[in-house]
């Protein structure tokens, strides 16, 4: 019950703005602290015996990849909010999350490619993991294109929600098919991480960086949601103005 109360309270944009303004300074401070601590831990993390110092790129690449997926997950949950409960903030959240998710996906791709150059000898390899992220990036670009072409936020809200849900259903299928395609075309990828073989001296900084990136994502999301609410306000005021003339 309490959770539903909180959701209903948040449905009011004015109250949401007030809450955001109260939370923002704390969230900013927390993000900066965790980020600085994470970077400090990364600086003193040992080198990988196989990859040497390039393993430091992983501390950016892997959290960015997690957030790229989390961003779409967030949009899918928000899509549910738009389609099922018609929660007024759901579309604001989805629309604010799209460019941020795309930016983290971009970071993941670029760092992956910069990691690949010393490891594979080329900037781009059609490796299963990189390719899935590339398709995810294309999906994000489609979502952004949808938002850019539709001026009326009410009209695009449910269209974007449907696309987010269809994408969310498709992403695991894409992941699976790209993995399958990859094993068909090349024997194994060079970077094999994940699983249980990560040493704590690397895993702990990685988790701290993941937390820092998540906080950064939330911070940017709140800031962008605030902009989106203001933008809608401007829009409705302009329409009032046009109607009154």
């Amino acid at each position: 019950m309490a959770l539903i109360d909180i959701f209903n309270n948040l449905a009011n944009p004015t109250r949401f703005l007030a809450l955001t303004n109260r939370v923002l300074p704390w969230l900013t401070a927390l993000t900066v602290i965790v980020l600085v601590y994470g970077l400090y831990r990364v600086a003193y993390a040992p080198d990988d015996y196989q990859q040497g110092a390039t393993v430091k790129i992983m501390f950016l690449h892997v959290p960015a990849a997690w957030l790229a997926m989390m961003g779409w997950g967030l949009m899918a949950v928000a899509a549910f909010g738009t389609l099922v409960w018609r929660h007024p903030l759901a579309d604001v959240a989805a629309r604010a999350a799209a460019p941020i998710g795309a930016a983290f996906t971009f970071i993941c791709l670029v760092t992956g490619s910069l990691w690949g150059r010393p490891m594979w000898g080329t900037y781009w390899v059609w490796d299963a993991r990189l390719t899935s992220v590339l398709v995810l990036f294309l999906l994000y670009l489609g979502m952004l294109a949808l938002y850019w072409t539709a001026e009326d936020p009410n009209r695009s809200a449910r269209a974007a929600a449907i696309l987010a849900l269809v994408g969310a259903i498709n992403i695991p299928i894409i992941k699976f098919s790209v993995d399958w395609w990859n094993t068909l075309h090349q024997p194994a990828s060079v970077i094999r991480m994940g699983g249980s073989a990560i040493d704590p001296s690397i895993l702990v900084p990685l988790l701290i960086m993941a937390l820092a990136f998540t906080l950064l994502f939330l911070l940017l999301l709140l800031l962008n949601m605030r902009n989106e609410i203001l933008r809608r306000r401007v829009r409705s005021m302009r329409m009032m103005q046009a109607a009154s003339i």
Binding site: V135, L138, L139, G142, A145, L146, L163, V166, G167, N170, I173, I174, F176, S177, V178
Partner: peptide, 8 residues
């Protein structure tokens, strides 16, 4: 919108 979904 559609092309990335047709990858599989």
């Amino acid at each position: 919108l559609v092309l990335p979904l047709t990858v599989p």
